Simulated scan of single mutants.
Amino acid sequence: MPISGRSHIRIARPSRDLAAAERFWAGGLGLKVVYRAEGGDAPGEHSLLMLGRPDADWHLELVHEASRPVEPRPTEEDLLVIYLDGDVPDELVGRLVEHGGTRVRSPNPYWNEWGVTVADPDGYRLVLCKRGWSNA
């Protein structure tokens, strides 16, 4: 089968402001910029920011097209969950907020009990879960 547990996953989203998104995801969470492309103002040209970790089988792609921006439309259930398998460090949550995030409560009590939810500058939600994936 061509899809395996090691298949790379790209999570792609529009962004209003790639600089603000980079502050949150790189400066706040600690992801690395794995690729960047600066687009122009002509139709079809877009700027691209990919963030991840060198050892991960996934990355986050954020796109902005100046000539035809797509407004992000996240719901409170659009989540990127990272399982920490341990307590969520207060200093990490503080750094995310300092870098443009907003701590929010989840409508799902599970995430409030087992983690911390922070909205990024575009409104997409990151959940830092203190459980490990195997016992989630």
Rank of each mutant, 00 (worst) to 15 (best):
M1Y: 09
M1L: 12
P2R: 13
S4Q: 12
S4E: 12
S7W: 10
S7T: 15
A12M: 06
A12P: 01
R13P: 04
D17V: 03
A19V: 15
E22L: 02
F24S: 00
W25H: 04
A26P: 00
G27Q: 01
G28Q: 06
L31N: 00
K32G: 07
V33W: 01
V34S: 05
Y35P: 01
Y35E: 14
A42D: 07
P43F: 06
G44Q: 03
E45K: 06
S47E: 00
L48W: 09
L49P: 00
L51D: 03
A56D: 10
D57S: 13
W58A: 13
A66V: 03
R68N: 08
P69C: 01
V70F: 03
P72Y: 10
P74A: 05
E77H: 10
E77M: 13
E77S: 15
D78H: 15
L79V: 05
L79S: 04
L80C: 10
V81K: 04
G86E: 09
V88Y: 09
P89R: 13
L92K: 14
G94V: 08
R95F: 03
R95Q: 11
L96W: 08
V97N: 11
V97A: 11
E98Y: 07
G101C: 08
T102F: 09
N108E: 15
P109W: 08
Y110R: 13
N112C: 13
N112H: 13
N112F: 06
E113C: 04
V118E: 09
A119F: 09
D120L: 07
G123H: 04
Y124H: 14
V127F: 06
V127S: 03
L128G: 02
L128K: 03
W133N: 10
A136G: 00
